[in-house]
C-alpha cells in the first residue's frame, strides 16, 4: 500500500489490522508519534489526516492510503514547538507530540483562540503531569 506522510510517499506492506501508529513507528521509523493508552482515549498518538487531528492508534493504516498524514516530524519548524519550550509546557514530554499536533490544527483554523476554544480543541489530549495551564499559555502565545 501507499502512505503519504509529511508530504513524502512511502510504499509498505502492512498486514490486515495494522494501525497507523504502528506503521509510522515500526515501518517508517517515525517514532515521534507516541502510543500511550492504545485505545483512543488519551490523544498521545494524535496525527493529522487531511489536516484534522485523528488518533493513529485506532486508525487502521489501510484506511488512509489516499489521504495526507502529518506527524510531529512534519511540524519540526512549527512555531508551536518553540512556544512549548518557552512556556515550559511539558514535564515528562510523552504527550507533547500529540499536544502540538492537535494545537497545530487549532491555530491553523483559528490563529487567536480564546482560553475556552483552546480547552475545547485540546480536550482530547491528556497530560498526566498536569501541565495544562502551560500548554494553554503556549497555544495562546504561539506567535510571540
Amino acid at each position: 500500500m501507499r502512505l503519504t506522510v509529511n508530504g513524502e510517499q512511502h510504499e509498505l506492506e502492512a498486514p490486515f489490522g495494522r494501525s497507523l501508529a504502528e506503521a509510522l513507528r515500526d515501518d517508517l521509523g517515525l517514532t515521534g508519534t507516541k502510543v500511550s493508552c492504545g485505545e483512543g482515549h488519551c490523544g498521545a498518538c494524535t496525527v493529522l489526516v487531511d489536516g484534522a487531528p485523528h488518533l493513529s492508534c485506532i486508525t487502521l493504516v489501510h484506511t488512509v492510503d489516499d489521504r495526507a498524514v502529518t506527524t510531529i516530524e512534519g511540524l519540526r519548524d512549527h512555531p508551536l514547538v518553540d512556544a512549548f519550550v518557552r512556556c515550559d509546557a511539558l514535564q515528562c514530554g510523552f504527550c507533547t507530540p500529540g499536544q502540538i499536533v492537535s494545537a497545530s490544527a487549532l491555530v491553523e483554523a483559528n490563529p487567536s483562540p480564546s482560553s475556552d476554544e483552546i480547552r475545547h480543541a485540546m480536550a482530547g489530549n491528556l497530560c498526566r503531569c498536569g501541565t495544562y495551564p502551560r500548554i494553554e499559555e503556549a497555544i495562546r502565545t504561539w506567535r510571540d
Binding site: 483512543g40 494524535t46 487531528p53 485506532i58 486508525t59 492537535s102 485540546m122 482530547g124
Partner: peptide
C-alpha cells in the same frame, strides 16, 4: 459526544 479527534473520525 467525544474528544475532538474522535469527533473528526
Amino acid at each position: 459526544a467525544a474528544s475532538p479527534q474522535l469527533r473528526n473520525m
